[in-house]
Amino acid sequence: MPPHLHPDHDTPVIDGDVYVRPRHLARATGTGDPALAPLTALGWSLRHDDLGNAYVHAPDDRVRLGFLPEGEDDGLWRINAYKDPFAPPTWGVCFNDSVPTEFVTAFTTALATAYEQGPDAYLARPDPRVPDRDPFRAVAPLTDRGWLFARPDPDVFSIQSPDKLASLDHTVGPLSLDDELNTREARWHLWAGTSINRPLWYATASTDTPVALITAVTECVADPAPLARWREATFSYAAGMAHLTPIEPDRPSAPTPLDVQRAVSLRPTPPRVTASVPRWSTTTSRPAPSRR
């Protein structure tokens, strides 16, 4: 989980004991609450079924999210948007059960912003003629961080992370919306691992998913900052791939030379003493050292 503020003060609280680098190898956390929060904060309705699945609906019922730990497949997060609440979805996004929760949170945060702006934002179809809606705007955060174009394929535009353990695939040509919503055969396919058939995690987005929402995810994926996780939960996937760095407990930092100089300048001048001042010797007890 990313750092958050302690409820009683402004000290960051980190949920984990190791940092995972690169972050696309961190995988999911144990709770989906951070990803639900941007939408419920807008007053979207939240309900649960008897199995523990959660459903979030926008007030106009044009955007719906399902958090489905007891779903029929590994699609843990399914988000759909509609021009008409009773019509088929206009676009759909799926994050499987291993996607780092921070990536889902980036999406729902951008979705909350778009929803407040209105249908022209959260139903904005990609359009290469419009700069803000050009699909390849979503690729820029990755290429800016060193992701490179991968296998040349006339049907798939693909770029890979520098360690070749994550990939973003953009399919060219016509696709069935039904396939995009229910399979991994979608316009956008983001995944991590050494095999596309058995990825560590994956996410898909259909053709008409707004570019701003996809860009929010790629920006989060491209962020070089590590993600905090618990060490015992990392061995199943990170061994030999991710870099794990212990999270040190908070310690007061050592004073810099400038700090010392300032302290000396602010210290009051002591009165002049003419009497002798006792000094430490082998027969006097040394005071306990002060804690830094």
Score class of each variant (00 low, 15 high):
91 W>F: 03
135 P>G: 08
92 G>C: 11
149 F>E: 14
131 P>K: 05
92 G>M: 00
120 D>A: 10
124 A>I: 07
137 R>Q: 14
108 T>A: 10
138 A>R: 09
102 E>F: 14
87 A>M: 07
87 A>K: 04
136 F>H: 10
117 Q>K: 08
148 L>Q: 08
136 F>E: 09
110 A>E: 04
108 T>Y: 00
101 T>I: 06
126 P>G: 07
110 A>F: 04
90 T>K: 07
106 A>K: 13
106 A>N: 07
131 P>T: 02
152 P>A: 15
88 P>V: 12
126 P>K: 05
141 P>K: 08
113 T>A: 14
132 D>A: 02
94 C>I: 12
152 P>L: 12
136 F>L: 15
110 A>S: 07
129 R>W: 06
147 W>V: 12
106 A>S: 13
98 S>P: 01
149 F>R: 15
144 D>F: 07
99 V>S: 06
120 D>Q: 05
108 T>S: 07
87 A>L: 05
90 T>N: 03
115 Y>Q: 01
136 F>Q: 04
120 D>H: 13
97 D>V: 05
115 Y>G: 02
122 Y>L: 00
129 R>E: 13
148 L>H: 14
114 A>F: 12
99 V>E: 02
112 A>T: 07
109 T>V: 13
131 P>S: 12
91 W>K: 02
110 A>Q: 11
116 E>W: 05
98 S>I: 00
140 A>T: 15
128 P>A: 07
118 G>I: 08
144 D>C: 00
87 A>F: 11
140 A>P: 03
119 P>G: 07
145 R>Y: 00
86 F>P: 06
